[in-house]
């Protein structure tokens, strides 16, 4: 049995480590942008993989493993956000903008404010939908399933996020 998903599902931590190494970069990038803080992002990544390990026996391969893992990461991040009682209006810029990669900064001379900072300044739900739709390429139906919001709400949040970003980046 060589498939690491199968072996991890059977309880093999070494196989699960293979899955971790293959996906941690994308999960960390998502968590970093959702949390806006490197320390919090690390916690979210850890919680995501622990949750994935716990839920792996129920993974039936109906979606790609990466998509399944993404869904867990989004849920972990949004649950954490709800648990800490933060509200959209209180979200500020990232605690450590230098932790975000230089490659993520826009090269467009018309975009004066850093794209990562602008994303970090979005309200959490709008930020999550923008990241999933415009950065990760998921469809509204998938986002609705991942986040537990209605498909129409996902569209509304994307509309809002894009305009907030346009406003922030064109100042």
């Amino acid at each position: 049995m060589s498939d690491p998903i199968e072996r991890a599902r059977e309880g093999d931590p070494d196989a699960f480590r293979v899955l971790y190494e293959g996906h941690v970069g994308r999960i960390y990038a998502l968590c970093l942008r959702l949390a806006g803080d490197p320390g919090k992002a690390e916690e979210l990544v850890q919680d995501t993989f622990i949750r994935a390990w716990e839920k792996l026996p129920g993974f039936r391969g109906e979606s790609a493993f990466g998509t399944w893992l993404f869904r867990i990461a989004v849920n972990v991040a949004l649950s954490e956000r709800r648990a800490t009682g933060r509200r959209e209006a209180r979200i500020g810029p990232v605690a450590d903008p230098e932790a975000l990669p230089a490659a993520g900064r826009s090269a467009d001379p018309g975009v004066r404010l850093d794209m990562e900072d602008a994303i970090a300044g979005l309200p959490p739900k709008a930020r999550a939908v923008f990241l999933l739709y415009d950065v990760e390429g998921y469809q509204h139906a998938e986002i609705a399933e991942m986040t537990g919001i209605a498909e129409g709400t996902s569209k509304t949040q994307l509309f809002r996020a894009r305009r907030l970003l346009r406003e922030a980046l064109s100042r």
Binding site: G25, L100, A103, S106, V111, M115, F130, D134
Partner: peptide, 11 residues
């Protein structure tokens, strides 16, 4: 700019 963002960041 969104499309150009890196989708993977090493912790």
């Amino acid at each position: 700019a969104a499309t150009a963002l890196p989708r993977s960041i090493v912790p």
